[in-house]
């Protein structure tokens, strides 16, 4: 068995205590489904972990204004099973029910998924299409930013030193049509296409590039699948060549457009 490199564990019970602790070397720790793996592989060697799981205020799912706020400690399973999410954000619940495998879903959090910014994320693509925002706190105060601006590139986010994500706010738009289609042959998706439309349409191509790629149009019918497939950034890997992945993008964008009732 590989052993975890040595570290020291902090267990704050309030957000204020946690904010005092975190810095570049004292990393936040939630489910550990990314962090502990990266530590075992020697890719990350934090000397301290700040366990956020003792902070009760980060566990809630609640209605907030015209949206739903999902606390930073909420796991994929808890969110997907939560009556508010099932009722108001059924499309998101369906996406979360297909993340990774049941153990990853039972332990991993949505916030941890966004903060790690692994490019092959269903969660980021879906939340961007839904217009989700990340709620951020630091000792100085709070701010919010679109998930689209938060996830900058592979393993890179807009989170600054000393900041923590406290939750994710997803707007509820009753007239919104939403579709998520993914192609997956290993434990992470090769491609995920999220599309949402009401008076305007956003389509997000996830997992094939270094970061989710967003395309906007007045309606789904205005999206051109073959033009999108030509334009997207594609990273070839063991799950497919560039040519193959571009082909997948075209097929899946066409299907997503059709799922939203667009023509093509």
């Amino acid at each position: 068995m590989g052993v975890l490199p040595a570290f020291r564990l902090h267990r704050p019970t309030t957000l204020a205590q946690a904010l005092e602790l975190v810095n570049d070397d004292r990393m936040p720790y939630a489910g550990g489904t990314e962090l502990l793996l990266a530590m075992k592989e020697g890719l990350l060697r934090p000397t301290h972990l700040v366990d956020l799981k003792g902070i009760g205020s980060l566990r809630d799912v609640r209605e907030s204004g015209s949206g739903v706020s999902i606390g930073a400690l909420v796991t994929h399973t808890q969110a997907a099973d939560h009556p508010i999410v099932v009722d108001r954000l059924a499309g998101l619940a369906a996406v979360l029910n297909r993340v990774g495998n049941p153990r990853v879903r039972a332990t991993g959090t949505l916030a941890g998924n966004l903060c790690f910014a692994e490019p092959r994320s269903d969660v980021a693509a879906a939340l961007i299409a839904l217009g989700g925002e990340v709620e951020i706190a630091s000792a100085e105060g709070r701010r919010a930013m679109a998930v689209e601006d938060f996830v900058i590139g592979p393993y890179t986010t807009a989170l600054e030193q000393g900041e923590l994500v406290t939750g994710i706010l997803v707007p509820v738009q009753p007239d919104l049509r939403f579709a998520y289609l993914k192609h997956q042959t290993t434990e992470r998706p090769t491609l995920g296409v999220a599309a949402a439309a009401n008076s305007h349409c956003s389509l997000v191509v996830g997992a094939v590039g270094f970061a989710p790629q967003v395309f906007r149009s007045p309606s789904p019918s205005d999206l051109d699948p073959s033009a999108i497939a030509d334009r997207v950034e594609v990273v070839p890997d063991l799950t497919g060549s560039e040519e193959y992945k571009r082909h997948l993008v075209e097929v899946y964008v066409r299907r997503a457009v059709a799922a939203l009732g667009g023509r093509r």
């Binding site: 550990g32 075992k40 990853v104 039972a106 332990t107």
Partner: peptide
């Protein structure tokens, strides 16, 4: 809940 005990503290 099922967990992967290989990477769970």
């Amino acid at each position: 809940q099922p967990v992967s005990s290989c990477t769970f503290l």
